[in-house]
């Protein structure tokens, strides 16, 4: 069980899921918005104080006009860490959230103890095209994001309430601001990833149809001493498709290299 709380940064109030106790984990979500609390998060709470803030502009929060791109989001989260990261945090980011996490860590990692990037956006492997989640229909998107098509069907069969549907529109709007062009990419980011000296683990599904697994190898090369873990028969949502395996992969890393 998580508590729905509110985090205030820069005059923006965003929703934040929080549970557990111990060292702090901050999980930065992907483009589809504040995640469902599931066994992945539950497993992490056994030993950690897990905070899952909603990005400003997502959900019902109104992003200030000053938050227009990924660099702005990184600066926003540096303020967030000043406000909520006392004592340092283990930073985990998925997809869009992974990109933001890497941008933060390049700028200032003084409040970050370790970095876990799950299929992050932000870097390109020339010649290896990524999927186009902006042109895919909702059905195609879900089918392409997970390998297990029974899971895809279950996800699609759940009809969102009107309120949830409204939030999804807002999420897509904000994700578009951040990732449309260049598509899910900051061309300069790879020039600065050498600044990340944190214990870093990169997690990728071997059958990610949005960001192919070749991108994982690229990230491993760009961040010195980082560790790449490839999950088999897994798509773009490791924490949804394999919640316990993914949580265990992160916990082992935090107990080992990141200690």
């Amino acid at each position: 069980m998580s508590h729905l709380t509110t985090a205030h940064v820069l005059d923006v109030a965003v929703r934040q899921l929080r549970a557990g106790s111990g060292e702090k984990i901050v999980f930065l979500h992907g483009a589809s918005g504040l995640p469902q609390w599931n066994p992945f998060f539950e497993a992490l709470t056994q030993n950690y104080d897990v905070m899952v803030p909603e990005h400003p502009g997502f959900g019902a929060s109104v992003a200030p006009k000053t938050l227009r791109n990924i660099a702005d989001m990184a600066m926003y989260y540096l303020d967030y860490l000043d406000a909520h990261g006392e004592g340092g945090v283990h930073l985990i980011g998925h997809s869009l959230g992974g990109w933001i996490a890497a941008e933060i860590a390049c700028r200032n990692s003084s409040r970050i103890k370790s970095l876990t990037l799950m299929a992050p956006a932000g870097v390109r492997v020339k010649g290896v095209s990524i999927g186009d989640n902006f042109i895919w229909s909702i059905e195609e998107t879900i089918q392409n994001l997970v390998v297990d098509q029974a899971l895809a069907e279950a996800m699609l069969s759940r009809v969102p309430t009107e309120e949830e549907a409204d939030l999804l529109i807002a999420n897509r709007f904000m994700a578009t601001k951040l990732g449309w062009e260049p598509r899910w990419l900051n061309p300069a980011l790879e020039n600065w990833l050498h600044r990340i000296k944190l214990p870093t683990q990169i997690i990728w599904g071997d059958t990610d149809r949005l960001f192919p697994a070749a991108y994982g190898e690229r990230w491993r090369m760009l961040i010195a001493n980082s560790k790449l873990t490839i999950l088999e028969r897994c798509g773009h949502l490791p924490h949804v498709e394999y919640p316990l395996v993914t949580a265990q992969t992160i916990i082992s890393f935090l107990n080992g290299a990141a200690k």
């Binding site: 902006f134 042109i135 895919w136 229909s137 549907a165 409204d166 529109i169 807002a170 897509r172 709007f173 994700a175 578009t176 601001k177 449309w180």
Partner: peptide, 21 residues
């Protein structure tokens, strides 16, 4: 055109998009 192509996110304001849907 399918929806995703005709009305990409942000092409209309969130409130106009909700009304159109």
């Amino acid at each position: 055109n399918p929806w995703e192509m005709l009305l990409p996110p942000g092409y209309m304001s969130v409130s106009s998009m909700k009304a159109t849907i």
